[in-house]
Amino acid sequence: MNSAPQPFQLLPGADDSPVILHVPHSSRVIPQSVRAGIVLDDRALELELDHITDSHTAEIAAAAAEAAPIAPWRFVNGLSRLVIDPERFPDEREEMLAVGMGAVYTQTTHREPLRPADVDPQPLIDRYFHPYAEAMTAAVADRLEAVGRAVVIDVHSYPTERLPYELHGDGPRPPICLGTDASHTPAELLAAAQKAFAGFGGTGLDSPFAGTYVPLEYYGKDPRVSALMVEIRRDVYMSEPGGPAGTGLDALGGALAALVDAVHRAGI
Results as ranks from 00 to 15, higher is better:
A64P: 10
D54N: 11
T53C: 07
V76H: 08
D54S: 06
E66L: 12
T57P: 10
A58W: 11
E59T: 03
A63Y: 08
D54K: 12
L49V: 09
R74F: 03
P69Y: 14
A65C: 12
H51S: 02
P69S: 09
I70N: 03
I60W: 05
A65I: 14
A71V: 05
A61L: 10
A61W: 14
I70E: 12
A65E: 14
A68I: 09
L82H: 02
P69W: 14
A62V: 02
D50I: 04
R74I: 03
F75Y: 15
G78V: 08
L82E: 01
E59S: 04
S80A: 05
E66W: 08
T57Q: 04
H51E: 13
A64L: 08
P72D: 07
A61Q: 14
P72A: 03
I60M: 11
A64Y: 10
H51W: 15
P72V: 07
T53H: 06
V76K: 08
L82C: 01
I52V: 15
A71R: 15
F75S: 00
L49F: 12
E59L: 05
H56R: 08
T53R: 07
T53D: 03
W73K: 00
A71M: 07
I70R: 15
E59I: 00
R81Y: 03
A62F: 07
F75T: 00
G78K: 11
A58E: 15
A67S: 14
T57A: 00
T53V: 04
A71I: 05
A62I: 03
F75V: 00
N77F: 06
W73R: 01
H51R: 15
A68N: 12
A61K: 13
A67C: 03
A64V: 09
D54Y: 12
H51P: 00
S55Y: 14
E59P: 01
P72R: 13
E66C: 02
N77L: 05
F75D: 00
S80P: 11
A71W: 08
A68K: 12
L49D: 04
H56G: 02
A64M: 10
A61R: 13
D54M: 07
A65Q: 15
A65S: 15
F75P: 06
A61D: 11
T57H: 07
E48I: 04
A64N: 08
F75A: 00
G78H: 12
E59N: 01
L49N: 07
R81D: 00
S80E: 08
A58M: 00
S55D: 15
A64G: 08
E66G: 06
A58T: 02
R81F: 03
D50F: 06
R81E: 00
G78N: 10
L82R: 02
V76R: 06
S80Y: 13
E48W: 05
A61T: 11
I70Y: 04
A58S: 14
D50Q: 13
I70P: 03
T53P: 07
A65W: 15
E66D: 14
V76T: 14
H56N: 04
T57F: 05
